[in-house]
Amino acid sequence: MTHIDTHPLLAVDALNVASADGQLLAPVSFTLEAGRALTLLGESGSGKSLLAHALMGTLPHGLRAGGTLTVDGRRCDAADPATRRAMWGRQLALLPQEPWFALDPTMRVGRQLAETHALAGLGNAQAWQRALHDLHGLGMAHAAQAWPTTLSGGMAQRVAFAITRAGGAPVLIVDEPTKGLDRVWRDELVARLQAALGVGCALLTITHDIAVARALGAMWRSCSTAGWSNGATPRRSSAHPRMPIPARWWPPNRRTGRRCARRRPVAMKSCARVA
Rank of each mutant, 00 (worst) to 15 (best):
residue 96 P to L: 09
residue 163 I to G: 11
residue 122 L to H: 07
residue 206 I to Q: 02
residue 186 R to W: 11
residue 221 R to P: 00
residue 124 N to A: 12
residue 167 G to P: 12
residue 253 N to W: 04
residue 60 P to M: 15
residue 27 P to M: 03
residue 81 P to F: 04
residue 266 V to R: 02
residue 215 A to T: 09
residue 139 G to P: 13
residue 140 M to T: 03
residue 179 K to S: 11
residue 99 P to E: 08
residue 53 H to A: 04
residue 248 R to A: 07
residue 79 A to N: 03
residue 220 W to L: 13
residue 76 C to R: 07
residue 30 F to S: 00
residue 184 V to M: 10
residue 65 A to N: 02
residue 261 A to N: 08
residue 170 P to R: 04
residue 91 Q to E: 11
residue 29 S to E: 07
residue 234 P to I: 12
residue 43 E to W: 04
residue 229 S to A: 06
residue 135 L to C: 08
residue 243 M to W: 04
residue 145 Q to D: 15
residue 247 A to N: 06
residue 199 V to Y: 03
residue 6 T to Q: 15
residue 68 T to F: 06
residue 11 A to F: 00
residue 228 W to H: 11
residue 174 V to L: 12
residue 41 L to T: 00
residue 143 A to N: 02
residue 199 V to R: 14
residue 171 V to A: 07
residue 86 A to F: 02
residue 103 L to N: 01
residue 163 I to M: 15
residue 252 P to C: 05
residue 84 R to N: 10
residue 256 T to H: 07
residue 7 H to F: 11
residue 235 R to M: 13
residue 133 H to G: 05
residue 56 M to L: 15
residue 8 P to I: 14
residue 176 E to Y: 06
residue 20 A to H: 06
residue 150 T to V: 14
residue 225 T to K: 12
residue 41 L to R: 02
residue 76 C to W: 08
residue 54 A to N: 11
residue 146 A to V: 05
residue 128 W to L: 00
residue 94 L to I: 12
residue 16 N to W: 00
residue 194 Q to S: 08
residue 208 H to W: 00
residue 127 A to F: 13
residue 124 N to C: 01
residue 18 A to Q: 14
residue 83 T to S: 13
residue 161 F to L: 15
residue 157 Q to T: 09
residue 66 G to S: 03
residue 155 M to D: 13
residue 173 I to C: 07
residue 133 H to W: 00
residue 240 H to Y: 02
residue 254 R to C: 06
residue 42 G to K: 07
residue 242 R to C: 02
residue 229 S to T: 14
residue 29 S to Q: 03
residue 116 T to K: 11
residue 65 A to E: 00
residue 71 V to D: 05
residue 179 K to F: 09
residue 133 H to I: 00
residue 204 L to V: 04
residue 252 P to G: 05
residue 63 L to F: 02
residue 21 D to E: 10
residue 15 L to W: 07
residue 251 P to R: 01
residue 130 R to E: 14
residue 95 L to A: 09
